[in-house]
Write a protein that binds this DNA or RNA. Structure first.
Length: 940
RNA sequence: GCCCGUGUGGCGGAACUGGUAGACGCGCACGACUCAAAAUCGUGUUCCGAAAGGAGUGUGGGUUCGAUUCCCUCCACGGGCACCA
């Protein structure tokens, strides 16, 4: 298989004509994978852990094939795992499958293949692909979330959470496709229409299950500060997502003559009570009870509310839609002036989920409100004057001012700062009570079973679950306003009207209501005889599955047919990995203690909020129910960037062209027949922007093809070498080829050097004082220290740059005509050390090639089982330092001084430099700044 | 719309805490080897300029002896937005 190449090195005295093998990755990679596998060196038993290290990459959805994003993710994790193993840690590095989810059902509909069969075939295919990557995974711990042996425990925990009061059932809106009569995911709603039927989507209320994550809003927020090995941006995103805001809830009395059912008040939430005198309107959500009440006697309003429901539930869609409102005719009375009446609108941008589902609009100081009043011609009054602006001339037209300033047009608040005004309004309204006339009657409070957001009080109970504040019983006095902490975070709706997910283990009985499935009956497994010939949930229409006897009374009852959100599956898999073998309990708490937390978690930035926040919540819920002993599952987090690629488009047909096709055309620029009879020339192709690899743009590269052509090591190397790991990496053919050449170069160098190196182990007896020898050893140890440090910081690209530099040095060593390895035994011993360390440095990234080189260098051991080399600190210290010398901040010269020079010596040396003398022209310098070991700046 | 990032040669990028901008790689050019090509090796490669020198890290401003790094403004591109995973 391998070609023999004669390598001639003219002009080099030590050019030894020798036969050099080309590295054959196809043969070598399979061979070393077999060796690792047979010796089981990556299996980590649950005993004698010593120092532990848990490195985990986000497990994949088994879509059928791995993509380059996986290659990047798993390579990074594997480098960490291999280095930590070499450093003596017991390393937990498992892999599994996030195996429930919609694509399996789509495949069932499109290709008539059962989700289970489709999923397990995909798992088999992807596992083979992962194995071909040479990852140091402990496959003995493999789990698939669709396995009843896994979801059984999830059902058990659902019941535990239910018992602990952390689960709730309530109404919530879903995307409803009125033609297909089915619930749609947000991604199945395209431009407000169902992806298959094309029908306009509506919101429909269903009773669904919720995990009460809002009860943990405050602890989840507080603990972010302690996650010091998480990217700052992820912590910030989570903080904003939780969205704690302090404000005031204010009851606005309603003008009695105007309401239809005698509603007496509307409660709003605001973070800007200071702007109360700038109020121009009150707006409520379309599903606010007051809106419904008003609509009952107003057909046009009812039509408007119905219109608001004709859209999906996605936030982005709601907020980018045109801001629309409808005047209910109801008037609200200003809390400081009952004679001041504000119109009450129903507005499509007010969310029932947030705050109280009602706001007051202050257009001058909120852009959304301003857009609204400008549309409905309600005008605005500025009440906060920006600093350095004359209050007399300050007007707002198109741009709201949302900053701080001095209060104007605000009666008793005038002249106060924003903060003072907030406080003053709160203080006054807390002590005010609605007049008895306005305080009677049914208030537009939430109805039973309505969802609740975090509305904990300021009184230190902010972390307790929020409660809807029921109307005070008659006689009880509630002030007009109360200080309130509000969270943007909503409870986690986990119900999915789908088949391929973990069944929710409850039974609905007409007599007993909702009854948990007894634990002895777990797992509730999915029936296999289901059909996907029509839309809707196959569990719901299955002839027998849902019919069961009530566990309590024995009467005929029905199973819950909703399954769990797949985010539930992925919220605890990392804990299950610590002991995936326990059959009776979700975890073995002793093993959780031993392995958790995950020391380094690696995955895509797209999971920055949902998956990570849910997992943080779930871990806390598991702690509360006794399954784990810790709060935070991930001590270290790293979010990698995407793999992107150029796009290619056929200008004539407007079709996308794959990179492989483009390469073919570029190689044969004249004409290329794509097989379909169409002939394409290079100039017919437009090279488009670099974008995330996607099937729709056809700009994907198949890892299988790359591994077959260049080898897993090359794919791994390129994934790490070209870009900082947190940023996107552009996949280029040139880059891969460069990595391939590098692999060959290493192999060539090792073969050239190996015959001339002393036996392994002899580097210990190095003559330290020999000049050239010490220089080489210093370069070796600097490379070792540098690369090790960069890997620990996960800066793989700079680690690789340092390896390149070191290889360039070793190339010179091999080729150096004056330093013949065959004759200078001390130098040869230093070279032996250099090569051994080089191979160890590349081994985490290119493990197969490293084993091959390690053997070629005469070692009997596996490099994968060799301890990481130790740096000799003495070899890192240079005797002299070269400092750049700046004159007025521009570099003009260098000065080399002894490492121990004091500032005065450095100054003398610097002032003696020609460039400095010229610049000073005889005058003394104004200033000389000396930063030790760094730089000198002379201010002339 | 809201939240979060990113922006440095022809390209990917480097520059630890404010201290030599462009490490390392790709590409390109020239040279060596070759009948030739590939592979390999060597030299060069931010821009302007013959040179001296000057300019330069998306834009415009600020702080500093010194700014890719800190602050403000604007522009461009990307990620997330709760039923994709």
């Amino acid at each position: 298989m391998s070609r023999r190449l004669a390598l001639n090195r003219p002009g080099k005295t030590n050019a030894i004509p020798m036969a050099i093998d080309r590295y054959n990755h196809r043969e070598a990679e399979a061979r070393w994978q077999k060796v690792w596998d047979e010796r089981g060196i990556f299996v980590t038993p649950n005993k004698d852990l010593g120092r532990k290290y848990y490195v985990l990459e986000m497990f994949p959805y088994p879509s059928g094939r791995i993509h380059m994003g996986h290659v990047r993710n798993y390579t990074m994790g594997d480098v960490v795992a291999r280095v930590k193993r070499a450093l003596g840690f017991s390393v937990l590095h498992p892999m599994g499958w996030d195996a429930f989810g919609m694509p399996a059902e789509n495949a069932a509909m499109e290709r008539k293949v059962h989700p289970k069969i489709w999923t397990y075939e995909n798992i088999a295919a992807m596992k083979a692909q992962l194995k071909s990557m040479g990852l140091s995974l402990d496959w003995s711990r493999e789990i698939a979330t669709c396995d009843p042996a896994y979801y059984k425990h999830q059902q058990k925990m659902f019941l535990d959470f239910l018992r602990a009061g952390m689960v709730e059932r309530r109404q919530s809106a879903v995307n409803w496709d009125p033609v297909d009569q089915t619930v749609l995911a947000n991604e199945q709603v395209i431009d407000g229409r169902g992806w298959r039927s094309g029908a306009v989507v509506e919101q429909r209320e269903l009773t669904q299950w919720f995990f009460k994550i809002t009860a943990f809003a405050q602890p989840l927020l507080d603990a972010l500060d302690g996650l010091d090995r998480w990217p700052e941006k992820v912590r910030l995103m989570q903080k904003n997502w939780i969205g704690r805001s302090e404000g005031l809830s204010i009851r606005f009395a309603l003008d009695q003559g105007m309401t239809s059912n005698g509603e007496s008040e509307v409660k709003i939430f605001t973070t800007r009570p200071d702007t109360l005198f700038g109020a121009k309107f009150v707006a409520v959500a379309p599903d606010h009870p007051l809106a419904a009440a008003a609509a009952a006697k107003n057909e046009k309003l009812a039509a408007f509310i119905a219109e608001c429901r004709h859209r999906g539930t996605a936030q982005a869609e709601i907020e980018t839609a045109e801001k629309l409102g409808f005047d209910t005719g109801i008037k609200a009375l200003h809390p400081f002036d009952p004679a001041w009446k504000l119109p009450v609108y129903v507005a499509n941008f007010i969310l029932m989920e947030y705050g109280t589902g009602a706001i007051f609009g202050c257009p001058a100081h909120d852009q959304r409100d301003l857009d609204f009043v400008n549309k409905y011609r309600l005008g605005n009054i500025p009440v906060v004057c920006p600093p350095d602006v004359d209050p007399k001339t300050f007007v707002v037209t198109d741009t709201a001012y949302d900053g701080d300033g001095r209060m104007i047009n605000s009666r008793f608040l005038d002249g106060m700062t924003t903060a003072e005004a907030k406080e003053e309004v709160a203080r006054r309204l807390e002590k005010t009570y609605l007049s008895p006339r306005a305080g009677r009657g049914r208030a537009p409070e939430r109805s039973e079973g309505d969802r609740v957001t975090g509305t904990a009080r300021e009184s230190g109970r902010a972390s307790t679950p929020p409660h809807p504040s029921p109307l005070p019983a008659s006689g009880e006095r509630e002030p007009v306003a109360q200080r309130q902490v509000n969270f943007r975070l909503r409870d986690w709706g986990i119900s999915r009207q789908r088949y391929w997910g973990c069944p929710i283990p409850v039974v609905h009985c007409e007599v007993c209501g909702v009854v948990p499935v007894p634990e002895k009956d777990l797992p509730v497994t999915l029936p296999e005889d289901v059909t996907f010939d029509r839309p809707g949930n196959p569990l719901d229409r299955h002839p027998t599955w849902k019919r069961v006897a009530c566990p309590q009374c024995g009467r005929p009852a029905t199973r819950e047919t909703d399954t769990m959100d797949t985010f539930v599956d992925s919220s605890w898999y990392f804990i299950r990995f610590t002991d995936p073998w326990t059959k009776t309990t979700p975890t073995d708490p002793a093993m959780v203690d031993a392995w958790m937390p995950v020391d380094q978690y690696i995955g895509g930035i797209e999971h920055a909020i949902l998956h990570l926040l849910y997992s943080r919540f779930f871990t806390r819920a598991m702690k509360k129910t006794g399954h784990v002993g810790l709060d935070e599952p991930f001590a270290g987090l790293f979010t990698q960037g995407m793999v992107v690629h150029e796009t290619y488009r056929n200008k004539k047909t407007d079709e996308w062209i794959s990179p492989a096709e483009f390469q073919g055309i570029a190689a044969k620029p004249e004409v290329t027949d794509l097989g379909s009879g169409s002939i394409l020339k290079l100039e017919d192709i437009e090279v488009g922007p670099v974008e995330k690899m996607s099937k729709s743009k056809r700009n994907t590269v198949d890892p299988d093809d790359i591994i077959a052509e260049y080898g897993a090591d090359v794919a791994r190397w390129f994934m790490l070498s070209d870009s900082p790991p947190e940023r996107d990496v552009i996949w280029t053919e040139e880059g891969v080829k460069g990595a391939y050449r590098f692999a060959q170069r290493i192999w060539r160098l090792v073969q050239q050097a190996a015959p001339h190196l002393p036996l392994p182990g002899s580097s210990l007896a190095l003559p330290v004082e020999q000049a050239g020898v010490t220089a080489l050893r210093m370069q070796t140890h600097q490379a070792l220290a540098g690369v090790t440090n960069e890997i620990e910081r996960l800066k793989f690209n700079t680690a690789i740059a340092k390896i390149y530099t070191f290889v360039n040095i070793l190339s010179e060593v091999v080729d150096d005509p004056n330093r013949n390895l065959t004759k200078d035994s001390g130098y040869a011993a230093a070279a032996r050390e250099g090569f051994d360390i080089l191979i160890q440095l590349i081994s985490p990234m290119m493990p197969h090639l490293a084993e091959e080189c390690w053997a070629a260098l005469g070692h009997d051991s596996l490099v994968a089982q060799t301890p990481w080399p130790a740096v000799e600190p003495a070899l890192l210290i240079e005797d002299t330092v070269t400092l750049p010398v700046q004159i007025n901040g521009k570099k003009r010269a260098d000065v080399t001084v002894s490492r121990n020079s004091v500032a005065a010596d450095v100054e003398t040396a610097v002032l003696a430099l020609d460039a400095v003398k010229r610049a000073l022209a005889g005058r003394p310098p104004k200033k000389v700044i000396i930063v030790p070991q760094r730089i000198v700046n002379v201010v002339a």
